[in-house]
């Protein structure tokens, strides 16, 4: 094999290794957007972003913090952010006395408030101090985001990050270099989309589903020229939506009846277990669910003037 051919193959391989993870990242766009929506909600409430990671991921943490705090793009507001790994004195002090695994968790416990966001970066998802800090953050009520790498469904076999991250963002490759590159793209997206949710003038940053539903509704009730476009499917009730009385407590479709008065229902974005013990519902029926309990079967076509 000639040198030129070897070069060509190596080049092709180098690009090829970046191909699949890049596409996988694109497929994760909904996850990333969901994380940004929640992050924007926290910033709106006065929260700050706390980032941490070891080694190269520590450098990423610093990069993320400065990205939010002092954006290179003019006209975007500065958002409070700090990287725990930047503080060499504190990190080494805790490391020497308490052990490396305690470093970030210790700092978090002093810095964090319940409105904050914790973002842990780990190339392989196995860094004990990053996992420990995510758990501490979760216990303190922070929004937890994990930026990890690996090929399996769960890069941390002990399940740590899965259990403790509200949002798990993955660079889906085993190649450490590519993980890093995907991470940079991911956190640039995090910054960009968080601002998008913050700046969106037409609605609250907390709920993109509600936001877009609102726009759709405006089209149909206010603008004479616009054609009604289909509203997006309802999202399952999320953190900031009232689930007790609101109409957001969505109509869902019964998919399968389970024993004990329970059923699987299609919410439009996935299936959820609900109780149908109080209604006569069969598969295919649309039921109205409040707090996990179906209270009425939505019948069709009877919406005009009722009896009295």
């Amino acid at each position: 094999m000639s040198v030129a051919t070897t070069m060509q193959l190596a080049l092709r391989d180098a690009f090829h290794r970046r191909d699949a993870p890049g596409h996988a990242l694109a497929r994760d766009s909904t996850r990333i957007a969901a994380a940004c929506r929640d992050m924007a909600g926290r910033f709106r409430r006065g929260g700050k972003l706390i980032v941490f990671g070891n080694g190269g991921a520590g450098a990423d943490a610093a990069h993320i913090a400065v990205e939010f705090l002092h954006p290179v793009i003019v006209g975007k507001r500065a958002l409070p952010a700090l990287a725990l790994s930047n503080d060499a004195a504190t990190v080494t002090a805790i490391g020497v006395r308490e052990g490396l695994a305690e470093t970030f968790a210790h700092q978090l416990a002093s810095w964090a408030g319940p409105h904050d966001i914790a973002l842990g970066v780990s190339r392989d998802g196995r860094c004990p101090n990053v996992l420990r800090a995510l758990r501490t953050a979760r216990d303190l009520g922070l929004l937890t985001v994990a930026l990890l790498g690996g090929t399996g469904p769960d890069p941390a076999p002990d399940g740590g990050a899965h259990a403790d991250a509200d949002h798990l963002l993955l660079a889906r490759t085993a190649d450490p270099d590519v993980v890093k590159e995907i991470h940079v793209t991911t956190y640039h997206l995090l910054w960009e989309l968080t601002h998008l949710f913050l700046d969106h003038p037409d609605g609250p940053a907390d709920d993109p589903a509600e936001d877009s539903a609102e726009n759709a509704a405006e089209d149909t009730t206010r603008d004479t020229r616009a054609h009604p476009r289909p509203a997006p499917p309802p999202e399952p009730p999320c953190g900031d939506t009232c689930v007790t009385c609101s109409d957001q407590a969505t109509p869902v479709t019964v998919v399968r009846l389970l024993h004990g008065g329970l059923a699987l229902a299609d919410t439009g974005t996935g299936t959820e277990e609900i109780s149908v013990a109080l209604v006569d519902a069969t598969v295919g029926d649309t039921v109205l669910v409040h707090a996990g309990e179906a209270i009425a079967v939505v019948t069709k076509g009877a919406h005009h003037h009722g009896r009295h």
Binding site: V279, A296, H303, H305, G306
Partner: peptide
């Protein structure tokens, strides 16, 4: 008393609930 929301609300409510 009128029921505009008859597609969901039965006049007598949900007895089981």
């Amino acid at each position: 008393v009128e029921n505009q929301y008859a597609r969901v609300v039965p006049w007598n409510g949900n007895a089981k609930a």
